[in-house]
Design a protein around this nucleic acid. Structure first.
Lengths: 160, 160
DNA sequence: TTAGATGCAAATGGTTTGCATGCGT
DNA sequence: ACGCATGCAAACCATTTGCATCTAA
């Protein structure tokens, strides 16, 4: 649990940073929201579900009701702090990486991983139907374990 | 409601065709299943939700319980007759087109459309993490209405 | 005859909502 | 003080499940 420096940030991520990020986004920094921002951004990019964040807040000694976690996640998304990723019919993920990028979906673990953009993938936009425009492209690579379990993945998902 | 010839099929789609398709797939052709196959394949490729199919069956005077519709849809998918498409967090779609292709998702109508494969889109596979293999790639183009409503779309969705 | 299919209702699970109370400005 | 934020429980909605009853082979 070494606090690795967040990508795009330098050094540790403080309570104060969290507050500033909220103000900058025009969101009122309440105790719960600051907590969530802190949990979300202190350790670099990650994907969370509402359920997971709810548990983490509890562990961090700042219990937040599940309903508030949902409300907050949506508010953050509207404010541009998060990106919603709807890849499977079950649950929704929220991604702290708001830039255009794509995902691996691990089927058995039901976890998300960023697809490396280094492996540049080219998607040519098909022409949308009349009167409509493409506002977003989501590419999901569904992964399945080859034969023996790859232990590394479990670890990566835990933090991502 | 002109019965357009199905793509890949010639002429009208009969009850008998439906039964054959089921037998060929190794699925026991019960009355309900034949009805569903008929509803699904008589008019070319389409996307359905369980709810929608359930209503159609009722209208077709062959009421089928919603639970059975779900069971059947899954059985069909396992038998390779359908392809499940999970693109948004709400509901699941089943696609009669089982080949590799991608989709337009109309945000406001919450409807699916096949993305024309003619506009050949190239997706370079990023290397999956150790021990995993990519089993499927889904590309979803989220569409939003430009300004004035495009009436044609509503029609297309009705049949697709 | 019998394994498998169906229907119903109840359970599930993620997400949303209504409303009374609390808190940031 | 004011208005938005929070918490709780109940509502919601798509989907699944358990079980008794049918039905295709």
């Amino acid at each position: 649990m070494t606090p690795a420096p967040a990508i795009g940030e330098v050094g540790e991520y403080s309570w104060h940073n969290a507050k500033q990020r909220l103000r900058a986004a025009g969101v009122r920094p309440t105790r719960q929201r600051v907590t969530l921002v802190w949990l979300l951004f202190r350790n670099g990019p990650r994907h969370v579900t509402a359920e997971l964040l709810h548990e983490e807040a509890a562990k961090a000694r700042v219990p937040i009701s599940l309903a508030t976690v949902y409300n907050t996640l949506h508010k953050f998304t509207a404010a541009g702090l998060l990106r919603e990723v709807a890849v499977d019919g079950r649950q929704r993920y929220f991604d702290t990486n708001t830039s255009e990028h794509h995902h691996f979906l691990i089927e058995d673990l039901n976890g998300l991983l960023d697809a490396p953009t280094s492996d540049l993938l080219a998607v040519r936009l098909p022409t949308p139907p009349d009167g409509y425009e493409t506002v977003r492209v989501d590419v999901v690579f569904r992964l399945r374990r080859k034969r023996e379990a790859a232990s590394r993945i479990g670890v990566e998902l835990g933090g991502n």
